[in-house]
Amino acid sequence: MGSKYTKRYTEEFKRDAVALVDSSGRTVTVAAREPGISPESLRGWHRRAEADRGESESGDLTSAEREEPKRLRKEGP
């Protein structure tokens, strides 16, 4: 059922979708239906936002922690 092309969403769209979950009290699955987002995508964005706010209980890395290895590789030895 999937497409060979991955949809790209802006950071603003992702933030708005996460805010919808947080403010509505809806589950990620229910909140994903209206804008037509896959629940898996929204769940990932929500987990990342929680980690960035220091609210993750699963030990997820923050965005800054995930970006650091990429930055270090670009900088080189």
Rank of each mutant, 00 (worst) to 15 (best):
M1R: 11
M1V: 02
M1P: 06
S3Y: 00
S3G: 09
K4I: 10
K4S: 14
K4V: 07
Y5R: 15
Y5S: 07
Y5H: 10
Y5I: 11
Y5T: 12
T6H: 12
T6Q: 09
T6E: 11
T6K: 14
K7I: 09
K7E: 09
R8K: 11
R8E: 13
R8M: 03
R8V: 14
Y9A: 03
T10L: 08
E11M: 09
E11G: 04
E11S: 08
E11Q: 13
E11H: 04
E12T: 07
E12G: 06
E12Q: 13
F13H: 08
K14L: 07
K14F: 03
K14N: 05
R15G: 00
D16N: 14
D16L: 11
D16R: 15
D16Y: 08
D16T: 03
A17N: 05
A17Y: 01
V18F: 10
V18S: 01
A19M: 07
A19P: 00
V21T: 01
V21K: 08
V21F: 06
D22P: 00
S23Y: 02
S24C: 05
S24M: 02
G25D: 06
G25A: 08
R26D: 10
R26P: 00
T27L: 02
T27R: 09
V28R: 06
T29H: 03
T29V: 08
T29A: 13
V30P: 00
V30I: 07
A31C: 00
A32S: 14
R33F: 00
E34S: 05
P35Y: 00
P35W: 07
G36D: 03
G36C: 01
G36L: 01
G36S: 00
I37N: 05
I37K: 01
S38I: 02
S38K: 12
S38V: 09
S38M: 01
S38E: 07
P39E: 10
P39Q: 08
P39I: 00
P39N: 03
E40T: 11
L42S: 00
R43L: 08
R43K: 15
G44Q: 08
G44T: 15
G44A: 13
W45N: 04
W45G: 01
W45Y: 08
H46S: 10
H46K: 11
R47K: 14
R47W: 03
R47T: 07
R48K: 12
R48A: 15
R48G: 07
A49N: 11
A49W: 15
A49P: 14
A51Q: 12
A51G: 10
D52E: 14
D52C: 11
R53H: 14
G54S: 08
E57H: 13
S58C: 04
S58E: 13
G59W: 03
D60W: 08
L61S: 10
L61Q: 13
T62Q: 03
T62A: 02
A64R: 14
E65V: 00
R66I: 07
R66L: 15
E67L: 14
P69F: 05
P69H: 03
K70G: 06
K70W: 08
K70M: 06
K70F: 11
R71N: 01
R71W: 02
R71Y: 04
R71C: 04
R73L: 11
K74M: 12
E75N: 13
G76K: 10
G76A: 03
P77I: 12
P77E: 12
